[in-house]
Design a binder for these strands. Structure first.
Lengths: 193, 193
DNA sequence: TACTGCATGTAATCGGTTACATGATTGC
DNA sequence: GCAATCATGTAACCGATTACATGCAGTA
């Protein structure tokens, strides 16, 4: 149940609407956690019901309303509690690796396509992560600037450093996957020769 | 929806009961996919209803029955179809990395404990994967022997090679995580000095 | 006799996905 | 006027988790 904490963490930077939060999950590189918008809107309502966030309603046209959410003191406490709490290691559930375990059932050409797609996907991801790391280091991302603006100067280094560390980790992961796919392609060659 | 395919793949080696299948998911290194036993039993019943597997019932004591499942021709076809089909890349959802993004909220000692636990977990995993790779290469695992026994001799090399490649990939992943945790520990030192 | 491991389930709940629906605002 | 994007939801469904329940078999 980390979606709520991802939301609390994003709101710590400042008030945001459900739509803006969904964008952070969908489009930006800030997606160590993914969530579709219906889940975000429902979770925000739940967090509001539990008093962890509050909503400022503004009229939008004649019938609709826009709801900007902000952290409550309880929400901030919950965020801090969660960060300190140890995570139970996650269970592995990887469809691509599961499938690769049984590649002998597929044609070599098909196996090649699998590995090529795996490589292409992670090359794309790698570029995203690297670009994001560069932006964080230059303190260019909007979210980071909002966080730094209301944090004590002495914390700035750590705030930036931990984020950089995470996205460098994601980049390293992508490189590991690219190498795995390349060794896979070599293996297909070896098996068909 | 890969649980069903994991089950079909395991049954390809030969008939098994729900309990034996659950053990493969729980205890053995064969867990690129994790599933708890209630999910396995229900999925097996569903697969039976769809005619992809069949169950042989044997009495167990006076009231209970043991059900050994085996692949039907339809199940085998579905397994082959799935292996050839391209996977959509999976969405990232990583609680440990999400939390690490906000480590500035925690005490340095707590952050150290997080990284140490991360490293310890993946060191354990690494040993599992390496042991499993060695067993596969020696063709020692029971499941592999059952598969090889009813496969054509000319396919043996590929059957072993793809499994080895997957578990070597898992080992590589574990090494990447260990290094990430170690760089994390260095970072805490640097930030607190 | 009691404990452990073998063995099979049901039920409640929850998190996540997909399809569908509606309206507002901005720019061509 | 129309399309694209902004913005907010509901509902149905499905996969995964957790708690609970039951009975068999071997052994200390």
């Amino acid at each position: 149940m980390s979606l709520r904490h991802a939301l609390l963490a994003l709101l710590e930077a400042g008030p945001m609407t459900g739509y803006e939060l969904a964008k952070q999950f969908d489009q930006s590189a800030d997606r160590v956690w993914h969530a579709p918008h219906p889940q975000i809107y429902t979770e925000l309502r739940k967090l509001e019901g539990e008093g962890l966030v509050a909503a400022d309603e503004q009229p939008r046209g004649t019938k609709a309303v826009k709801r900007a959410y902000r952290l409550n003191p309880d929400g901030e406490r919950e965020l801090r509690r969660w960060v300190s709490e140890l995570e139970a290691p996650q269970q592995v559930r990887d469809a691509a690796y599961l499938k690769a375990t049984y590649f002998e059932y597929a044609e070599p050409a098909t196996v090649r396509r699998h590995f090529e797609r795996h490589r292409a996907h992670h090359e794309e991801q790698l570029q995203r992560w690297e670009r994001h790391v560069a932006q964080l280091q230059a303190r260019e991302t909007e979210l980071l600037q909002r966080r730094l603006a209301h944090a004590s100067e002495s914390d700035h280094e750590a705030i930036v450093a931990y984020k950089v560390h995470v996205y460098q980790g994601m980049a390293e992961r992508a490189r590991t996957e690219i190498e795995w796919a390349e060794r896979g392609l070599d293996l297909v060659d070896k098996l068909t020769s």
